[in-house]
Design a protein around this nucleic acid. Sequence first.
DNA 1: CCCTGATTCGC
DNA 2: GCGAATCAGG
Length: 187
Amino acid sequence: MAWTDERVETLKKLWADGLSASQIAKQLGGVTRNAVIGKVHRLGLSGRAAPSRPARRPAPRPAAVRAPRPAAAAQVNKTARNGTDRKELIAQPAPAAPPPAPVDAKRLANGEYATVLTLREGMCKWPIGDPADSQFRFCGHPTKPGAAYCEAHAQQAYQPQAKRKRKPSDDARAVLDSLQTLRRANF
DNA sequence: CCCTGATTCGC
DNA sequence: GCGAATCAGG
């Protein structure tokens, strides 16, 4: 992607607006943040009014002492690095409904609870109780093929990040609720 | 680890 | 001139 007059103007404006090089690169498209920074320097735009952080100016490294860059290794890494740089952000769906209450552990055919020794594929691996306690066991309810947890605990385990945004007081209540649930399960 | 800008140098 | 690789740091 060439630096057309229009793209250069956009670059100048966004840079003056205080956007970071990576943000400008995303907005322009077809360039990396390195390309943007390189262009900024060639245009003589480096050094802005109010960057989020002042750019430090350390002592320049002596070129003669600097280790040579391995060109071959650079080529190998190019694809992966570009893939990382161009990664697009995907909009997150709306938060899910609150998770259901935890389930009681399932008893096995012999009346015991699932332990680390008896837990099998297809059994919910949700831990219940203190792992150091002899009463420690696993949920043990059936899972979908390949799933680590039963439906209820899967919802508990895989909550969207967004819906965890609550008031601190609510978080404290959730902790107390969890402790009471554990007590009920163990004693 | 995420991110920031700065610099070098092969192309 | 361009920008990937790298550096130096928050």
